[in-house]
Design a protein around this nucleic acid. Structure first.
Lengths: 237, 237
DNA sequence: AAGTGGTCTAGACCACATT
DNA sequence: ATGTGGTCTAGACCACTTC
Protein backbone atom coordinates (compact mmCIF):
# COMPACT_ATOMS: atom_id res chain seq x y z
CA UNK A 1 0.00 0.00 0.00
CA UNK A 2 1.30 3.46 -0.88
CA UNK A 3 2.51 5.63 1.92
CA UNK A 4 0.17 8.50 1.09
CA UNK A 5 -2.80 6.15 1.27
CA UNK A 6 -1.69 4.89 4.67
CA UNK A 7 -1.29 8.42 5.99
CA UNK A 8 -4.57 9.50 4.46
CA UNK A 9 -6.40 6.53 6.00
CA UNK A 10 -4.87 7.17 9.38
CA UNK A 11 -5.91 10.80 9.43
CA UNK A 12 -9.38 9.98 8.09
CA UNK A 13 -9.82 7.50 10.91
CA UNK A 14 -8.75 10.06 13.46
CA UNK A 15 -11.42 12.39 12.13
CA UNK A 16 -14.13 9.73 12.03
CA UNK A 17 -13.16 8.50 15.51
CA UNK A 18 -13.36 11.99 16.87
CA UNK A 19 -9.68 12.13 17.72
CA UNK A 20 -9.56 15.22 15.55
CA UNK A 21 -12.81 17.06 16.10
CA UNK A 22 -14.73 19.58 14.03
CA UNK A 23 -13.02 22.89 13.41
CA UNK A 24 -9.91 21.65 15.17
CA UNK A 25 -6.61 22.42 13.60
CA UNK A 26 -4.68 19.30 12.77
CA UNK A 27 -0.89 19.15 13.04
CA UNK A 28 1.12 21.10 10.51
CA UNK A 29 2.42 19.35 7.44
CA UNK A 30 5.91 19.75 8.79
CA UNK A 31 5.02 17.84 11.96
CA UNK A 32 3.10 15.19 10.06
CA UNK A 33 6.22 14.65 7.96
CA UNK A 34 8.15 13.86 11.12
CA UNK A 35 5.37 11.75 12.63
CA UNK A 36 4.88 9.61 9.54
CA UNK A 37 8.52 9.79 8.50
CA UNK A 38 7.50 11.06 5.09
CA UNK A 39 8.42 13.90 2.82
CA UNK A 40 6.34 17.03 2.42
CA UNK A 41 5.03 16.04 -1.03
CA UNK A 42 3.79 12.74 0.31
CA UNK A 43 2.00 14.25 3.29
CA UNK A 44 0.52 16.92 1.05
CA UNK A 45 -0.85 14.28 -1.30
CA UNK A 46 -2.42 12.43 1.62
CA UNK A 47 -4.07 15.61 2.87
CA UNK A 48 -5.24 16.56 -0.62
CA UNK A 49 -7.17 13.30 -0.80
CA UNK A 50 -9.04 14.28 2.33
CA UNK A 51 -9.69 17.73 0.92
CA UNK A 52 -11.29 16.27 -2.17
CA UNK A 53 -13.36 13.94 -0.01
CA UNK A 54 -14.58 17.03 1.75
CA UNK A 55 -13.28 16.15 5.20
CA UNK A 56 -10.72 18.90 5.78
CA UNK A 57 -9.86 22.42 4.70
CA UNK A 58 -6.41 23.81 4.06
CA UNK A 59 -5.62 27.50 4.31
CA UNK A 60 -2.27 28.75 3.19
CA UNK A 61 -0.62 30.76 5.90
CA UNK A 62 -2.70 29.43 8.72
CA UNK A 63 -3.04 25.66 8.66
CA UNK A 64 -5.27 22.67 8.10
CA UNK A 65 -8.64 22.22 9.78
CA UNK A 66 -11.28 19.56 10.16
CA UNK A 67 -14.43 20.57 8.35
CA UNK A 68 -17.47 21.23 10.45
CA UNK A 69 -19.45 18.32 9.04
CA UNK A 70 -22.65 16.98 10.42
CA UNK A 71 -22.57 13.29 11.36
CA UNK A 72 -24.99 12.83 8.53
CA UNK A 73 -22.60 14.21 5.96
CA UNK A 74 -19.76 12.12 7.31
CA UNK A 75 -21.80 9.02 6.73
CA UNK A 76 -22.42 9.91 3.15
CA UNK A 77 -18.80 10.73 2.51
CA UNK A 78 -17.52 7.48 3.86
CA UNK A 79 -19.71 5.67 1.36
CA UNK A 80 -17.04 6.37 -1.18
CA UNK A 81 -17.73 7.70 -4.58
CA UNK A 82 -17.06 4.72 -6.72
CA UNK A 83 -19.22 3.83 -9.61
CA UNK A 84 -20.25 0.31 -10.21
CA UNK A 85 -22.91 -1.60 -12.05
CA UNK A 86 -26.31 -2.17 -10.48
CA UNK A 87 -25.30 -5.65 -9.39
CA UNK A 88 -22.50 -4.55 -7.10
CA UNK A 89 -24.49 -1.57 -5.86
CA UNK A 90 -26.83 -4.03 -4.16
CA UNK A 91 -24.49 -6.79 -2.99
CA UNK A 92 -27.04 -8.32 -0.62
CA UNK A 93 -30.01 -8.22 -2.93
CA UNK A 94 -31.26 -10.38 -5.69
CA UNK A 95 -30.67 -8.52 -8.95
CA UNK A 96 -31.81 -9.72 -12.33
CA UNK A 97 -33.25 -8.34 -15.55
CA UNK A 98 -36.23 -8.66 -17.75
CA UNK A 99 -34.81 -8.44 -21.26
CA UNK A 100 -36.98 -6.34 -23.58
CA UNK A 101 -34.59 -6.49 -26.49
CA UNK A 102 -31.18 -7.92 -27.26
CA UNK A 103 -29.99 -7.62 -30.81
CA UNK A 104 -27.16 -6.41 -32.99
CA UNK A 105 -27.93 -3.36 -35.07
CA UNK A 106 -26.23 -0.73 -37.11
CA UNK A 107 -25.37 2.02 -34.65
CA UNK A 108 -27.95 4.83 -34.38
CA UNK A 109 -26.52 8.24 -35.15
CA UNK A 110 -26.73 9.57 -31.60
CA UNK A 111 -24.96 6.53 -30.20
CA UNK A 112 -22.28 6.75 -32.89
CA UNK A 113 -21.59 10.31 -31.78
CA UNK A 114 -21.49 9.44 -28.11
CA UNK A 115 -19.33 6.37 -28.62
CA UNK A 116 -17.30 8.19 -31.25
CA UNK A 117 -17.34 5.28 -33.68
CA UNK A 118 -17.91 5.07 -37.41
CA UNK A 119 -21.54 5.37 -38.46
CA UNK A 120 -21.48 2.00 -40.20
CA UNK A 121 -20.34 0.17 -37.05
CA UNK A 122 -22.46 -2.43 -35.36
CA UNK A 123 -23.53 -2.36 -31.74
CA UNK A 124 -25.47 -4.46 -29.30
CA UNK A 125 -28.87 -2.91 -28.79
CA UNK A 126 -29.88 -3.81 -25.26
CA UNK A 127 -33.09 -2.89 -23.56
CA UNK A 128 -33.79 -4.30 -20.15
CA UNK A 129 -35.54 -3.65 -16.86
CA UNK A 130 -33.48 -4.27 -13.74
CA UNK A 131 -35.23 -5.84 -10.80
CA UNK A 132 -33.88 -5.53 -7.28
CA UNK A 133 -35.53 -7.90 -4.82
CA UNK A 134 -38.26 -8.54 -7.38
CA UNK A 135 -39.10 -4.85 -7.66
CA UNK A 136 -38.59 -3.11 -11.02
CA UNK A 137 -36.08 -0.33 -10.42
CA UNK A 138 -34.38 0.86 -13.59
CA UNK A 139 -35.03 0.61 -17.29
CA UNK A 140 -31.83 0.67 -19.29
CA UNK A 141 -31.19 1.24 -22.97
CA UNK A 142 -27.59 0.34 -23.72
CA UNK A 143 -25.46 0.45 -26.84
CA UNK A 144 -22.08 -1.28 -26.88
CA UNK A 145 -19.74 -1.72 -29.83
CA UNK A 146 -19.51 -5.41 -30.70
CA UNK A 147 -15.80 -5.02 -31.50
CA UNK A 148 -14.96 -4.01 -27.96
CA UNK A 149 -17.24 -6.40 -26.10
CA UNK A 150 -17.25 -9.65 -28.04
CA UNK A 151 -19.53 -12.61 -27.42
CA UNK A 152 -22.01 -10.92 -25.15
CA UNK A 153 -24.83 -13.38 -24.50
CA UNK A 154 -28.37 -13.05 -23.24
CA UNK A 155 -27.40 -14.63 -19.94
CA UNK A 156 -25.01 -11.71 -19.34
CA UNK A 157 -27.80 -9.28 -20.09
CA UNK A 158 -29.99 -11.01 -17.54
CA UNK A 159 -27.19 -10.83 -14.97
CA UNK A 160 -24.31 -8.43 -14.80
CA UNK A 161 -22.82 -6.92 -17.95
CA UNK A 162 -20.09 -5.22 -15.96
CA UNK A 163 -19.25 -8.55 -14.37
CA UNK A 164 -18.83 -10.10 -17.82
CA UNK A 165 -16.60 -7.25 -18.96
CA UNK A 166 -14.41 -7.36 -15.90
CA UNK A 167 -14.24 -11.03 -15.03
CA UNK A 168 -14.51 -12.78 -18.36
CA UNK A 169 -13.06 -10.29 -20.82
CA UNK A 170 -10.59 -8.96 -18.25
CA UNK A 171 -11.11 -5.40 -19.41
CA UNK A 172 -10.78 -2.50 -17.02
CA UNK A 173 -13.46 0.13 -16.74
CA UNK A 174 -11.74 3.43 -16.22
CA UNK A 175 -14.32 6.18 -15.97
CA UNK A 176 -17.77 7.34 -16.91
CA UNK A 177 -19.29 10.66 -17.91
CA UNK A 178 -22.78 11.04 -16.61
CA UNK A 179 -25.56 13.54 -17.05
CA UNK A 180 -28.70 13.51 -14.97
CA UNK A 181 -31.99 15.06 -15.88
CA UNK A 182 -35.62 14.71 -14.99
CA UNK A 183 -38.82 14.21 -16.92
CA UNK A 184 -42.17 12.46 -16.95
CA UNK A 185 -42.34 8.75 -17.51
CA UNK A 186 -43.74 7.58 -20.80
CA UNK A 187 -46.69 5.22 -20.58
CA UNK A 188 -44.46 2.29 -21.40
CA UNK A 189 -41.90 3.22 -18.74
CA UNK A 190 -44.65 3.69 -16.19
CA UNK A 191 -46.02 0.26 -16.95
CA UNK A 192 -42.68 -1.54 -16.86
CA UNK A 193 -41.53 0.20 -13.70
CA UNK A 194 -44.85 -0.15 -11.93
CA UNK A 195 -45.66 3.53 -11.71
CA UNK A 196 -48.53 5.80 -12.65
CA UNK A 197 -48.50 7.46 -16.04
CA UNK A 198 -46.64 10.77 -15.95
CA UNK A 199 -44.83 9.99 -12.71
CA UNK A 200 -41.41 11.60 -12.43
CA UNK A 201 -38.32 9.71 -13.48
CA UNK A 202 -34.62 10.50 -13.27
CA UNK A 203 -32.76 9.98 -16.51
CA UNK A 204 -29.06 9.20 -16.30
CA UNK A 205 -27.21 9.29 -19.58
CA UNK A 206 -23.79 7.74 -19.31
CA UNK A 207 -20.80 7.12 -21.52
CA UNK A 208 -18.41 4.56 -20.04
CA UNK A 209 -14.75 4.27 -20.94
CA UNK A 210 -12.27 1.42 -20.74
CA UNK A 211 -8.75 2.06 -19.61
CA UNK A 212 -7.78 1.90 -23.24
CA UNK A 213 -9.58 5.20 -23.66
CA UNK A 214 -12.31 3.77 -25.87
CA UNK A 215 -15.96 4.32 -25.06
CA UNK A 216 -17.53 0.91 -24.53
CA UNK A 217 -21.02 1.91 -23.44
CA UNK A 218 -23.61 4.55 -24.12
CA UNK A 219 -26.54 4.05 -21.85
CA UNK A 220 -29.66 5.83 -20.81
CA UNK A 221 -31.18 4.70 -17.52
CA UNK A 222 -34.68 5.55 -16.42
CA UNK A 223 -34.93 5.47 -12.63
CA UNK A 224 -38.07 5.37 -10.53
CA UNK A 225 -38.28 8.61 -8.63
CA UNK A 226 -38.58 6.93 -5.27
CA UNK A 227 -35.37 5.06 -5.76
CA UNK A 228 -32.86 7.49 -7.07
CA UNK A 229 -30.32 9.89 -5.69
CA UNK A 230 -26.91 11.11 -6.74
CA UNK A 231 -24.33 12.70 -4.51
CA UNK A 232 -21.16 14.61 -5.10
CA UNK A 233 -18.75 17.13 -3.69
CA UNK A 234 -18.06 20.32 -5.58
CA UNK A 235 -14.82 22.15 -4.96
CA UNK A 236 -13.83 25.63 -5.96
CA UNK A 237 -10.27 24.84 -6.98
CA UNK B 1 0.26 31.28 -13.16
CA UNK B 2 1.60 27.94 -11.92
CA UNK B 3 3.66 25.91 -14.30
CA UNK B 4 1.46 22.83 -14.05
CA UNK B 5 -1.58 24.92 -15.02
CA UNK B 6 0.25 26.30 -18.03
CA UNK B 7 1.29 22.84 -19.16
CA UNK B 8 -2.16 21.46 -18.51
CA UNK B 9 -3.80 24.25 -20.48
CA UNK B 10 -1.40 23.80 -23.35
CA UNK B 11 -2.08 20.10 -23.65
CA UNK B 12 -5.83 20.59 -23.22
CA UNK B 13 -5.75 23.06 -26.09
CA UNK B 14 -3.85 20.64 -28.27
CA UNK B 15 -6.55 18.06 -27.64
CA UNK B 16 -9.42 20.45 -28.26
CA UNK B 17 -7.71 21.83 -31.39
CA UNK B 18 -7.26 18.35 -32.72
CA UNK B 19 -3.49 18.55 -32.61
CA UNK B 20 -3.64 15.46 -30.44
CA UNK B 21 -6.46 13.33 -31.80
CA UNK B 22 -8.61 10.62 -30.25
CA UNK B 23 -6.81 7.46 -29.19
CA UNK B 24 -3.49 8.99 -30.10
CA UNK B 25 -0.65 8.51 -27.72
CA UNK B 26 0.71 11.78 -26.46
CA UNK B 27 4.42 12.29 -25.76
CA UNK B 28 5.88 10.48 -22.78
CA UNK B 29 6.19 12.30 -19.50
CA UNK B 30 9.95 12.24 -19.92
CA UNK B 31 9.72 14.09 -23.22
CA UNK B 32 7.15 16.53 -21.89
CA UNK B 33 9.57 17.33 -19.09
CA UNK B 34 12.16 18.33 -21.66
CA UNK B 35 9.69 20.19 -23.85
CA UNK B 36 8.25 22.25 -21.01
CA UNK B 37 11.50 22.38 -19.09
CA UNK B 38 9.75 20.98 -16.03
CA UNK B 39 10.32 18.20 -13.57
CA UNK B 40 8.51 14.90 -13.65
CA UNK B 41 6.27 15.74 -10.69
CA UNK B 42 5.11 18.93 -12.34
CA UNK B 43 4.30 17.28 -15.65
CA UNK B 44 2.53 14.49 -13.82
CA UNK B 45 0.38 16.96 -11.93
CA UNK B 46 -0.55 18.70 -15.18
CA UNK B 47 -1.55 15.40 -16.78
CA UNK B 48 -3.48 14.31 -13.70
CA UNK B 49 -5.68 17.37 -14.04
CA UNK B 50 -6.58 16.27 -17.54
CA UNK B 51 -7.27 12.75 -16.30
CA UNK B 52 -9.73 14.03 -13.74
CA UNK B 53 -11.36 16.20 -16.38
CA UNK B 54 -11.80 13.02 -18.37
CA UNK B 55 -9.76 14.07 -21.39
CA UNK B 56 -6.92 11.56 -21.26
CA UNK B 57 -6.06 8.12 -19.95
CA UNK B 58 -2.78 7.03 -18.42
CA UNK B 59 -1.62 3.42 -18.42
CA UNK B 60 1.43 2.47 -16.44
CA UNK B 61 3.87 0.63 -18.62
CA UNK B 62 2.48 1.82 -21.91
CA UNK B 63 1.79 5.52 -22.00
CA UNK B 64 -0.75 8.32 -22.06
CA UNK B 65 -3.59 8.49 -24.55
CA UNK B 66 -6.26 10.91 -25.63
CA UNK B 67 -9.67 9.59 -24.69
CA UNK B 68 -11.99 8.69 -27.50
CA UNK B 69 -14.50 11.40 -26.71
CA UNK B 70 -17.33 12.48 -28.91
CA UNK B 71 -17.30 16.16 -29.83
CA UNK B 72 -20.42 16.37 -27.74
CA UNK B 73 -18.68 15.17 -24.61
CA UNK B 74 -15.75 17.51 -25.19
CA UNK B 75 -18.13 20.44 -25.21
CA UNK B 76 -19.61 19.44 -21.91
CA UNK B 77 -16.22 18.91 -20.32
CA UNK B 78 -14.91 22.29 -21.33
CA UNK B 79 -17.82 23.87 -19.50
CA UNK B 80 -15.78 23.37 -16.40
CA UNK B 81 -17.07 21.91 -13.25
CA UNK B 82 -17.30 24.95 -11.07
CA UNK B 83 -20.22 25.62 -8.85
CA UNK B 84 -21.66 29.04 -8.61
CA UNK B 85 -24.85 30.72 -7.56
CA UNK B 86 -27.75 31.03 -9.99
CA UNK B 87 -26.76 34.58 -10.81
CA UNK B 88 -23.38 33.75 -12.28
CA UNK B 89 -24.74 30.63 -13.97
CA UNK B 90 -26.73 32.91 -16.22
CA UNK B 91 -24.39 35.84 -16.78
CA UNK B 92 -26.31 37.21 -19.76
CA UNK B 93 -29.75 36.84 -18.31
CA UNK B 94 -31.88 38.87 -15.99
CA UNK B 95 -32.00 37.01 -12.67
CA UNK B 96 -34.08 38.10 -9.71
CA UNK B 97 -36.19 36.57 -6.97
CA UNK B 98 -39.67 36.61 -5.63
CA UNK B 99 -39.20 36.48 -1.88
CA UNK B 100 -41.73 34.19 -0.19
CA UNK B 101 -40.19 34.49 3.24
CA UNK B 102 -37.24 36.19 4.85
CA UNK B 103 -37.01 35.94 8.62
CA UNK B 104 -34.76 34.96 11.47
CA UNK B 105 -35.80 31.82 13.30
CA UNK B 106 -34.49 29.31 15.75
CA UNK B 107 -32.81 26.67 13.63
CA UNK B 108 -34.98 23.65 12.74
CA UNK B 109 -33.53 20.36 13.89
CA UNK B 110 -32.70 19.04 10.42
CA UNK B 111 -30.88 22.23 9.50
CA UNK B 112 -29.00 22.22 12.81
CA UNK B 113 -27.74 18.74 11.95
CA UNK B 114 -26.73 19.64 8.44
CA UNK B 115 -25.06 22.88 9.46
CA UNK B 116 -23.62 21.22 12.54
CA UNK B 117 -24.56 24.08 14.83
CA UNK B 118 -26.12 24.20 18.29
CA UNK B 119 -29.85 23.58 18.35
CA UNK B 120 -30.52 26.95 20.00
CA UNK B 121 -28.74 28.90 17.26
CA UNK B 122 -30.55 31.34 15.03
CA UNK B 123 -30.62 31.21 11.26
CA UNK B 124 -32.02 33.18 8.37
CA UNK B 125 -35.03 31.36 7.00
CA UNK B 126 -35.13 32.21 3.33
CA UNK B 127 -37.70 31.05 0.84
CA UNK B 128 -37.60 32.44 -2.64
CA UNK B 129 -38.36 31.69 -6.27
CA UNK B 130 -35.64 32.53 -8.74
CA UNK B 131 -36.68 33.98 -12.06
CA UNK B 132 -34.42 33.81 -15.11
CA UNK B 133 -35.54 36.11 -17.92
CA UNK B 134 -38.89 36.47 -16.17
CA UNK B 135 -39.47 32.71 -16.10
CA UNK B 136 -39.74 30.99 -12.71
CA UNK B 137 -36.94 28.41 -12.59
CA UNK B 138 -36.05 27.33 -9.08
CA UNK B 139 -37.66 27.48 -5.68
CA UNK B 140 -35.10 27.66 -2.91
CA UNK B 141 -35.41 27.09 0.81
CA UNK B 142 -32.20 28.29 2.48
CA UNK B 143 -30.97 28.31 6.06
CA UNK B 144 -27.87 30.31 6.95
CA UNK B 145 -26.43 30.91 10.42
CA UNK B 146 -26.74 34.58 11.27
CA UNK B 147 -23.36 34.50 13.03
CA UNK B 148 -21.54 33.57 9.84
CA UNK B 149 -23.42 35.80 7.42
CA UNK B 150 -24.21 39.02 9.25
CA UNK B 151 -26.48 41.80 8.02
CA UNK B 152 -28.14 39.93 5.22
CA UNK B 153 -30.88 42.18 3.81
CA UNK B 154 -33.92 41.57 1.69
CA UNK B 155 -32.24 43.26 -1.27
CA UNK B 156 -29.55 40.53 -1.19
CA UNK B 157 -32.25 37.88 -1.19
CA UNK B 158 -33.81 39.47 -4.25
CA UNK B 159 -30.43 39.56 -5.96
CA UNK B 160 -27.41 37.37 -5.36
CA UNK B 161 -26.70 35.96 -1.91
CA UNK B 162 -23.40 34.51 -3.09
CA UNK B 163 -22.46 37.90 -4.44
CA UNK B 164 -23.07 39.45 -1.02
CA UNK B 165 -21.00 36.77 0.69
CA UNK B 166 -18.10 37.08 -1.69
CA UNK B 167 -18.01 40.77 -2.52
CA UNK B 168 -19.28 42.46 0.59
CA UNK B 169 -18.33 40.08 3.37
CA UNK B 170 -15.17 38.97 1.57
CA UNK B 171 -15.70 35.37 2.59
CA UNK B 172 -14.52 32.53 0.40
CA UNK B 173 -16.82 29.70 -0.53
CA UNK B 174 -14.76 26.56 -0.54
CA UNK B 175 -16.95 23.61 -1.44
CA UNK B 176 -20.41 22.16 -1.43
CA UNK B 177 -21.88 18.72 -0.82
CA UNK B 178 -24.86 18.07 -3.00
CA UNK B 179 -27.46 15.35 -3.26
CA UNK B 180 -29.93 15.15 -6.09
CA UNK B 181 -33.22 13.35 -6.08
CA UNK B 182 -36.50 13.41 -7.91
CA UNK B 183 -40.14 13.65 -6.89
CA UNK B 184 -43.50 15.11 -7.78
CA UNK B 185 -44.11 18.80 -7.33
CA UNK B 186 -46.42 19.81 -4.53
CA UNK B 187 -49.39 21.94 -5.54
CA UNK B 188 -47.68 25.02 -4.18
CA UNK B 189 -44.46 24.32 -6.06
CA UNK B 190 -46.39 23.68 -9.24
CA UNK B 191 -48.18 26.97 -8.91
CA UNK B 192 -45.08 29.03 -8.13
CA UNK B 193 -43.01 27.43 -10.86
CA UNK B 194 -45.76 27.53 -13.44
CA UNK B 195 -46.18 23.79 -13.84
CA UNK B 196 -49.01 21.29 -13.66
CA UNK B 197 -49.73 19.60 -10.37
CA UNK B 198 -47.67 16.45 -9.93
CA UNK B 199 -45.13 17.41 -12.60
CA UNK B 200 -41.63 16.07 -11.94
CA UNK B 201 -39.08 18.20 -10.12
CA UNK B 202 -35.42 17.71 -9.34
CA UNK B 203 -34.54 18.34 -5.72
CA UNK B 204 -30.97 19.40 -4.96
CA UNK B 205 -30.04 19.44 -1.32
CA UNK B 206 -26.80 21.25 -0.68
CA UNK B 207 -24.56 22.09 2.23
CA UNK B 208 -22.09 24.85 1.40
CA UNK B 209 -18.81 25.43 3.23
CA UNK B 210 -16.61 28.47 3.65
CA UNK B 211 -12.86 28.13 3.49
CA UNK B 212 -12.90 28.36 7.25
CA UNK B 213 -14.49 24.92 7.21
CA UNK B 214 -17.82 26.07 8.62
CA UNK B 215 -21.07 25.24 6.90
CA UNK B 216 -22.70 28.51 5.92
CA UNK B 217 -25.68 27.25 3.96
CA UNK B 218 -28.15 24.40 3.96
CA UNK B 219 -30.42 24.68 1.00
CA UNK B 220 -33.01 22.67 -0.82
CA UNK B 221 -33.70 23.72 -4.39
CA UNK B 222 -36.69 22.60 -6.38
CA UNK B 223 -35.95 22.70 -10.11
CA UNK B 224 -38.44 22.58 -12.96
CA UNK B 225 -37.88 19.37 -14.83
CA UNK B 226 -37.42 21.06 -18.17
CA UNK B 227 -34.60 23.17 -16.87
CA UNK B 228 -32.34 20.92 -14.91
CA UNK B 229 -29.36 18.74 -15.53
CA UNK B 230 -26.29 17.77 -13.59
CA UNK B 231 -23.09 16.44 -15.06
CA UNK B 232 -20.06 14.76 -13.63
CA UNK B 233 -17.17 12.48 -14.33
CA UNK B 234 -16.74 9.31 -12.31
CA UNK B 235 -13.31 7.75 -12.03
CA UNK B 236 -12.36 4.35 -10.78
CA UNK B 237 -9.27 5.43 -8.86
C1' DA C 1 9.28 38.73 11.05
C1' DA C 2 7.99 34.16 11.43
C1' DG C 3 5.49 30.39 10.04
C1' DT C 4 2.02 28.21 7.13
C1' DG C 5 0.77 25.61 2.93
C1' DG C 6 1.89 25.70 -2.51
C1' DT C 7 5.02 24.81 -6.15
C1' DC C 8 9.03 22.93 -8.18
C1' DT C 9 13.26 20.35 -8.76
C1' DA C 10 16.61 16.41 -9.76
C1' DG C 11 17.02 12.17 -8.94
C1' DA C 12 15.96 7.55 -6.86
C1' DC C 13 13.47 3.28 -6.88
C1' DC C 14 9.19 0.51 -7.90
C1' DA C 15 5.16 -1.76 -10.52
C1' DC C 16 3.70 -2.86 -14.75
C1' DA C 17 3.43 -3.62 -19.97
C1' DT C 18 5.69 -4.54 -24.06
C1' DT C 19 9.34 -6.54 -26.71
C1' DA D 1 15.55 -6.16 -21.07
C1' DT D 2 13.70 -1.92 -21.80
C1' DG D 3 10.80 1.70 -21.00
C1' DT D 4 6.47 3.44 -19.20
C1' DG D 5 3.98 5.86 -15.48
C1' DG D 6 3.72 5.83 -9.93
C1' DT D 7 5.77 6.95 -5.65
C1' DC D 8 8.96 9.15 -2.68
C1' DT D 9 12.67 12.10 -1.09
C1' DA D 10 15.29 16.34 0.65
C1' DG D 11 15.51 20.60 -0.03
C1' DA D 12 14.61 25.08 -2.38
C1' DC D 13 11.82 29.14 -3.05
C1' DC D 14 7.22 31.48 -3.15
C1' DA D 15 2.46 33.33 -1.60
C1' DC D 16 -0.11 34.18 2.03
C1' DT D 17 -1.64 34.83 7.04
C1' DT D 18 -0.73 36.12 11.43
C1' DC D 19 1.67 38.47 14.86
Amino acid sequence: MQKYVIISNDIRNKILNGEYVANQQIPFEKDLCVHYNASKMTVKKALDMLVSEGLIIKRRGSGTFVKDLSADAINRITLANQFRGTTSLYPDKKVYSKVLNFSIEKVPELAANKLNIASDSFVYDIHRVRYVDDKPTVMEKIYMPIDLIPNLKEKNIKGSIYGYIKEELHLNIQSAHRTISVRKATDFEAEELGMEKGDPVAVAEQVGYLDTGSAFEFSTSIHRYDNFSAEFVLTSN
